[in-house]
Design a binder for these strands. Structure first.
Lengths: 240, 240
DNA sequence: CGGCCGCTTGACTATTATCAAAGATGGTGG
DNA sequence: CCACCATCTTTGATAATAGTCAAGCGGCCG
């Protein structure tokens, strides 16, 4: 049976051990031993912190994970999100960001050492792991492009179209998305403030490009326009 | 003897073949055959374009390479620079950005297929290649942090301190750097305009933090201040 | 029902972009 | 060797996008 593990740690960066004195590995080791690997984690829990040694590779089965970093003065940067099907935690030996759940999230945990061995033994798995890292690199470059040159509306459109494409890939409708994250996560991901994100949502709504239900369900009523905005090929609309 | 190859292609994205009809591989094949691998390339030449198939892995021996992308409407984003000692061109099978030389640059070219074979045969080389990709990923995440949350002066300080650290690693003084790139490259790298970059240089100079010689040689006269700015821990100075 | 949290909206500010033009710098050819 | 031209950098004036501060709205949960 799955049990919700409640991790007690805040997202304080530069803390190697959590307030309860348990490392991620130890916390996962105290889960239910007869279901090795599969874990259910509550919302808003920290999976790991920046600087910690990598102890597990996770496969997201359900829910959403948010990756972020903190500057010394408290400014927060969201580097990305992980959704069901994503393999997270591959890369160098130490975590380069914090990871937190945004919802109740089911994860399959593979000890880093075991994963490393498996990668060495199985060339196919090795290729898949390498592909995942390359994909992450491509995503990071795309992220750089989005936040360094796009306007607020282009950034939000790009974000929404990314979710739309993901929906389509998973056999869902690309014409609407469910936002599992709060405005502050979107803002910190796009290098904006919550106010600007909110205003841009309102602008999209007033322009007839989207419809909003409960602030978390977005229906695309002019996806062509949004796609054009997202790819940065719009001359008009806030970039004349 | 090394011969300067003059590549004729512009940095037009989405062009698989260059105006002269030669692919990168063919152009390199037409170099001097008795010195396989080592090539000298003139300044402002394109090594590869975004979308092209990866044909070589290069080791930079001297000079500087600039990686960039173009948006449909002409906006340009610089994703990074490569300096002597850097291995460039590892990653997925297709180039995700353009690569251009900023100076006369000597490169050691290794055919992608040969590199792939070598990586498969030699686990040590494999680990080094994986480490290089992870390093690129870390750098990309750092880049995201810099351009999404730092002010213009913090961005420029971060850029300069990065060069300072590189100097130190190579046994040179960390107290001055030589900029092989133009202001436009710095601007497109930091998500700013040339005017803002120039003004920020002037501001640093007037504040007594740097001295400029010929606009391309920067001497750090208050490196502590610059380091603090770069790490985003400054409350004052354009962020009260 | 009330308080809390997150989202939206408003008024105002400020950092950076844009437009424009005047120095530097470097290379070429007379 | 110098003048001229092209390119790059700096500086100035103005505009605009996004940030900041502040307050009101709405849903959710105890």
């Amino acid at each position: 049976m799955l049990d919700t593990i409640t991790l007690k740690s805040p997202s304080d960066a530069a803390v190697m051990l959590r307030p309860n004195g348990l490392s991620t590995a130890q916390m996962f080791a105290t889960g239910c031993p007869h279901q090795p690997g599969l874990r259910k984690v509550a919302a808003n829990e920290t999976l790991w912190c920046e600087g910690e040694q990598r102890e597990h590779i996770f496969i997201v089965r359900s829910g959403t994970v948010c990756f972020s970093r903190m500057l010394p003065d408290g400014r927060r940067i969201v580097l990305g999100f992980a959704y069901p099907g994503d393999i997270i935690g591959i890369g160098s030996d130490f975590h380069c960001c914090d990871a937190q759940t945004l919802q109740v999230t089911r994860l399959e945990a593979i000890p880093a050492a075991a994963f490393k061995r498996a990668v060495n033994d199985d060339p196919v798995l090795g290729k898949r792991a390498a592909a995942a890292v390359n994909q992450a690199l491509d995503a990071a470059y795309h992220h750089v492009v989005v936040i360094s040159k796009l306007s607020a509306s282009e950034r939000l459109a790009s974000f929404l179209m990314g979710l739309s494409v993901r929906n389509e890939k998973h056999g869902l409708s690309p014409l609407s998305v469910l936002l599992p994250m709060r405005r502050i996560d979107i803002a910190d991901y796009l290098g904006l403030t919550i106010e600007t994100v909110s205003r841009t949502f309102t602008m999209f709504k007033n322009a007839g490009w989207i419809a909003l239900d409960q602030a978390n369900i977005v229906i695309f009523t002019d996806i062509q326009k949004l796609r054009a905005l997202a790819s940065g090929e719009c001359e008009e609309a806030h970039r004349p």
